[in-house]
Amino acid sequence: MNIFRLAGDLSHLAAIIILLLKIWKTRSCAGISGKSQILFALVFTTRYLDLLTSFISLYNTFMKVVYIGCAYATVYLIYMKFKATYDGNHDTFRVEFLVVPVGGLAFLVNHDFSPLEILWTFSIYLESVAILPQLFLISKTGEAETITTHYLFCLGVYRALYLFNWIWRFYFEGFFDMIAIVAGVVQTILYCDFFYLYVTKVLKGKKLSLPA
C-alpha cells in the first residue's frame, strides 16, 4: 500500500458515493447512463469473486464488499426505484460492442487460462471502457449536471492515481502487472477530454455543456 494506491481507492469510493447520493437526494437518475452502471456492477462481480477463495486483508475485503454493494444499489435505483427518471432514450450505447470483444480478448490475453483468472482479466478490460456509455450519453445530450461531472472526475482520477501506484510499485517492489497497466492507461486516456472540460469549465463555475 502506498499513498497513490490509497488515494486512488478513496477517489474511487468518493465517486461511487457521490453518484449514489446524487441519485438519492435528487430522487432522479437523469443524465446517468444505466448501461455504464450495469457494466461497473459486472466489473466488480467478475473481479471480486476471489472474495470467496482468498483473503488478502480486512481493508481489501471491506472495500470490495462496499464497491459491489454500492454498484448494485446504484443499478437498483436507476432501473427500479427511480426508473421513471431514467434517460433511456439517450442511453443508447450498444454495450455488446464492448462486452463481446472484451470477453474475447480476456480469453486470448491473460496471465493464466483458468476460470477465475479469465474473469479477473475480463473485469480489468471491461472497466477500462465501461464509462463509454456514460460519455456517449453526455455527448448526445450535450450537457451534464455539475454533480455528475464531480462523479466522473473522481472516477477518472482514481485510475490515474493507480498509474502512479504502479510506477511506485515497479520501482520499489519490482512488481508490475502488464494487463492492469495497459488497461489502466487506456482507461485514463478515455477521461482526458473530460478532464480538460472539467478544468476549463466546471472548476470555473460553469456548467458542462458541449457545443452543438
Partner: peptide, 10 residues
C-alpha cells in the same frame, strides 16, 4: 518477477 501472482489491488 512474480507478475500478478495474487491480485491485491481493487
Amino acid at each position: 518477477a512474480d507478475e500478478a501472482a495474487a491480485h491485491d489491488e481493487l
